[in-house]
Amino acid sequence: MSFFETYGDRLITAIQVHLCYVLTSVTIGFVVALILGILLSRIPQYAKIIMPILSIFQTIPGIVFIGVLFLYLGMIPATVIIALAVYAIFPVLKNTYTGLLDVKPEYIEAAKGCGMSPLQTLFEVELPLASPSIITGLRMSTIYTVSWAVLAAMIGLGGLGEFIYIGIASNNNELILAGAIPSAIMAIILSLLIDVLGRFIIPKGLRGAK
């Protein structure tokens, strides 16, 4: 019996479930991180203290976070999505914050000079200038989330991790690869898509500059 005959259907479902977890949690994480990053960049004097505290939480291993969350919330997709979204926040938050702070003050002054309101300055000057950094953060976050989403299988919620966990439990490298290869491909495709997205978002003059 060939591998795909036995596992084919389960693999396709697993890829869909995995992708669903990744897209939902990255989207949530991205929105939260963007808002937080903007807020923190308005108060750099406090952000200097808040950012390191937030980054300490990043050192909590995923299995602890998802494991403890499971004990309280149970076996529901929200457990996975909350945990993954929290981890997706950090890279975007850090890059949004530093990207916004790196915007040269003279541009902001110039915007003020043109009579722009602070909100207009943010959306029309600061965010576009910080966009390369923000996109890089989003890309990192996505790659990590694809990899972390393996942990969904730890709490019985499927995804590609199921193949990896079953493979390790039974010493079966075919199964491990059946989980790992689609997951790596997913990470690569998503990161390429984000690069394409970046082409549309990043202002022309900034393209190519890292």
Partner: peptide, 18 residues
């Protein structure tokens, strides 16, 4: 049916997930 990590099996049955 839910494949789950060995370490969480008892927690899962106690909280009604399985």
């Amino acid at each position: 049916n839910k494949p789950i990590d060995l370490s969480l099996k008892y927690a899962a049955i106690k909280n009604g997930s399985i």
